[in-house]
Design a protein around this nucleic acid. Structure first.
Length: 301
DNA sequence: TAAGATAAGAGGGACAT
DNA sequence: ATGTCAGTCTTATCTTA
């Protein structure tokens, strides 16, 4: 892998580069500098391990972005371009990055720093409360930093932005958490998280994959104690629905819940609408509505 | 008791002004 | 920027089987 020119930081040849497999950004774990993903095409080969795997598997020390004293440099402007948008000479960009690093380190003692401390303290508390994986926490911390960087936090509550970052992170990682789930674990109201979340993905250009209905089914099944057989039947049905594009525009959870409900009926599994609605975090009415227009739409096809 | 029906209201997207 | 409109979902209450 080419590690010259643009990929250089104050650590020089001692730099420890790792790639975030989700967003593709490259981080030096020694100084915390971050490069945007387009610099390198392929993923670093070290990352064949599960994110929950042993820490020894990682190249370099497992520095956490969720620690306030590390990764401050994620706030450094990441484009090695001059004011006219041209790429800088490698030697110049190295120097500039060194400057930026120290610039930020000196500023870090101020309100920005304290804000991050508060945010990440809160974040680690929420980790247990919401049952989030390390990877999700890392990403949430990363998103929050970006938000901070863009002054999106100013005028809004830290908690709301943080909660939104967590939600966005869950979405990106494909963890089936709803706004409601996140709201339940925090002091923040659902709509406030939702508002902040929309701002985040708008301003930070976060690409959020659509919620995978299959994962919703899996989650609800576990929650409601539905048999493997019924679950798989539901997934099959869901596949068809996705192909027929019936799934668009509805709450994925509501749809998944309905499909599961139908599956239960078919397999003679005694689950009430209430059981499933509770497990899915939607109301019975939503299931009924979905149920009704699924039936009419299936007849049309 | 589970399920269906109905009504009122919240929140957000699309679109026009 | 602000308002309107259609569509979705929630909460609450009543009815039906």
């Amino acid at each position: 892998m080419q590690r010259t020119s643009i990929i250089s930081c104050i650590c020089g040849p001692n730099q420890q580069l790792v790639t975030d497999p989700e967003c593709g950004e490259i981080v030096c774990t020694k100084c915390g500098l971050v490069w945007p993903e387009r610099v390198i095409e392929s993923r670093a080969e070290w990352r064949t391990f599960d994110s929950e795997g042993s820490e020894r598997a990682r190249a370099g020390s497992p520095t956490s972005l969720a620690q306030h004293d590390m990764g401050l440099s994620t706030m450094i402007g990441k484009e090695n371009k001059d004011s006219s948008g041209r790429q800088l000479e490698p030697s110049v960009s190295t120097a500039i990055q060194r400057l930026r690093t120290w610039d930020f380190r000196s500023k870090a003692q101020s309100s920005t720093h304290r804000g991050l401390i508060r945010a990440f303290t809160e974040l680690s508390g929420l980790k247990d409360k919401l049952g989030l994986s390390d990877a999700i926490i890392e990403k949430a911390a990363y998103v929050y930093r970006k938000a901070q960087e863009k002054s999106l936090v100013r005028g809004r509550s830290t908690s709301a932005i943080l909660a939104a970052a967590i939600y966005a992170s869950c979405r990106e990682m494909g963890a089936p958490r709803t706004l409601k789930d996140v709201a339940a674990g925090t002091e923040v109201k659902r709509k406030d998280i939702s508002r902040s979340y929309r701002i985040l993905i708008l301003e930070l250009d976060i690409k959020v994959p659509l919620v995978d209905p299959m994962k919703c089914i899996a989650k609800i099944s576990n929650q409601a104690g539905i048999s493997e057989k019924t679950k798989r039947a539901a997934m099959k049905t869901m596949n068809d629905l996705v192909e027929m594009k019936i799934s668009a525009g509805k709450l994925p959870m509501g749809l998944a819940a309905t499909v599961l409900y139908m599956s239960c009926l078919k397999n003679g599994e005694n689950k009430t609408q209430r059981d499933i609605a509770d497990a899915a975090g939607v109301t019975e009415v939503t299931i009924r509505n979905r149920f009704n227009d699924l039936q009419t739409r299936l007849q049309l096809n």
